[in-house]
Write a protein that binds this DNA or RNA. Structure first.
Lengths: 205, 205
DNA sequence: TAGATTGTTAATCGATTAACAATC
DNA sequence: TAGATTGTTAATCGATTAACAATC
């Protein structure tokens, strides 16, 4: 049953997928748990154990067929179709995210952008027009959007989270440096660069 | 001995510090492991255990003095002085990072920015002038910079990492979606929003 | 004092690793 | 076949939690 697979295992699958894509770009057709392990700096046993939660994907003596394993991982992570994403916040960070080219070939497309600044509403970022924040709930519901990226000031992040969840969002990528409170069943991932830096300074001389 | 404290514990300290700052802004002077736990969605036992690695900071029956605990955590994480940071890459993301206001009050200041695009070299982002990438090694060495943020295309990320490490950098915040290979003693933290999104789609219907 | 909360221990729980039979 | 690598088991390792004496 899928729900008993450790979350920490799920979190590594995108990293495996990313490295497989690189190997593929390098022209390789076959890889092994050892090759992946060396490139990712983890143990080959862990890679084999992680994959074995989902089925046998390799061949003894040979390794893994890269295109096949990529396909399988994409299926597991539900990346066999593109996910529409709502972006809340059109400041510097929001605009950088909207222009970032790395989402599409990995399964995501920003389809709506919101801000509460009258100077930004109506303007275009790429080919998407920034909408008023008051339309968030209606638009997300109408578009049946399940994923939102929050790139607003800390002071409004919780209210925005409440709004998007009410509208049906079930996965939030939160760039505001604050722990959000949401109902059960809603997933949140946090991106807080300052926290990452603070984690590393502990080890600096 | 500091080196035996689990890295996963170190990684939670910035989150505790962040929440303590919020409590402080709300005007509170005292908190408890229970209050912190509820706000962060983790167990109070974990918070007390984590803190106990570094010393007794609380008072039985009362809890923790917020200003005091903040000071102690800052000392532990070496945040009692400001860290100069080199930013490599002045594209959309680099510019958003350079303008991000959230670094300074958490212990970091971007003091140099590099790019290899002649159209960007010499231009200003805030009050910092973008320098040519060929100056990276010399400038980082001269400034004795220990922390770098990498916001360059995937194809050049490893080469940039090699360069900054050669120049003396010991902590890298990497925004390129690639696992970097560096010598022992160099810390890396990864920020890959697409990977975070892929982690969450596993759970979506 | 009575009530509350810490710091710490021991138990539990979960994740990683080593090892190897199976087999390509 | 000989060599290599998977998938899986069992052992090890590490992290989390429950519980409570100490004490403010």
């Amino acid at each position: 049953m899928a729900s008993e697979i450790p979350d920490i295992v799920i979190g590594r699958l995108p990293v495996y997928l990313r490295e497989l894509s690189r190997l593929s770009e390098e022209g390789l057709e076959i890889t092994s748990s050892h090759q992946l392990a060396e490139r990712l700096g983890i143990s080959s046993a862990q890679i084999r154990k992680d994959l074995s939660w989902f089925g046998p994907f390799g061949k003894q003596g040979t390794g893994y067929n890269i295109p096949y394993l990529r396909e399988q991982l994409k299926k597991i992570l539900k990346l066999d179709h593109e996910w529409p994403v709502a972006l809340i916040g059109a400041g510097d960070l929001g605009r950088a995210l909207a222009r970032y080219g790395g989402f599409t070939h990995r399964g995501f497309r920003i389809v709506m952008i919101f801000d509460n600044d009258p100077a930004k509403i109506g303007s275009y970022i790429g080919n998407i027009q920034v909408q008023a924040a008051e339309n968030i709930e209606e638009q997300i519901r109408a578009g049946q959007i399940q994923i939102a990226m929050i790139a607003v000031p800390t002071s409004s992040a919780q209210a925005i989270a409440d709004t998007v969840v009410k509208a049906g969002v079930r996965a939030i990528l939160n760039y505001a440096p604050i722990t959000l409170s949401v109902q059960n069943g809603v997933r949140i991932q946090y991106i807080d660069p300052a926290a990452h830096l603070q984690h590393m300074t502990y080890y600096l001389g």
